[in-house]
């Protein structure tokens, strides 16, 4: 065991290394680790929050689905009702339209009947007149008796 100046060199080196660690290593590392600690804690808290939000969202989701189902059912029943109404309406419409057509046809028939009778009457009058004319040709002056013929034909 010779002691020599290595002792002093080592002590000096020791002081320098401790100083270096104290200044440039330890505080940085400790700060870094504390920062990470808070970050991890924050992250865990955020994860918890997210979990909670997810649960709430799941509940809300269930509610929405339920609501949607109800709404859909309502819409379907409404549509059914409306369909029934439409069917009824068109039934009655068709009925009244048919009625109207029947009436129109009847009126047309009536009108044609009247027309035909009118024509017939006119023709009969003409025929009668022709006959009368033939008969009276010789003894009646058409000019003198024209008023009687006209009166007769209007009476027919």
């Amino acid at each position: 065991m010779n002691f020599n100046a290595t002792l002093i060199g080592q002590t000096f080196a020791f002081v320098v290394f401790v100083w270096f660690t104290m200044k440039f290593v330890w505080p940085l590392l400790l700060k870094q680790m504390h920062d990470r600690e808070t970050r991890i804690a924050d992250g865990l808290a955020a994860a918890d929050k997210g979990q909670k939000a997810l649960e709430e969202a799941a509940v809300r989701h269930g509610e929405l689905v339920e609501e949607g189902k109800q709404h859909a059912a309502e819409i379907i029943s409404q549509a059914q009702r409306r369909g029934d109404e439409i069917v009824d309406e068109s039934k009655s419409n068709a009925k009244s339209e048919g009625q109207r057509l029947i009436h129109a046809a009847e009126a047309e028939i009536e009108r044609e009947k009247t027309q035909a009778r009118e024509d017939l009457r006119k023709e009969v009058a003409t025929l009668a007149l022709a006959g009368v004319e033939q008969i009276l040709m010789r003894e009646i002056n058409p000019d003198a008796h024209n008023d009687i013929i006209t009166k007769l034909s209007s009476e027919l």
Partner: peptide, 16 residues
């Protein structure tokens, strides 16, 4: 060596 290695880690301040 010790100072260098530890300082290198300390300097690369990463929170990850």
């Amino acid at each position: 060596f010790f100072c260098f290695m530890f300082h290198r880690v300390a300097k690369r301040a990463s929170e990850g």
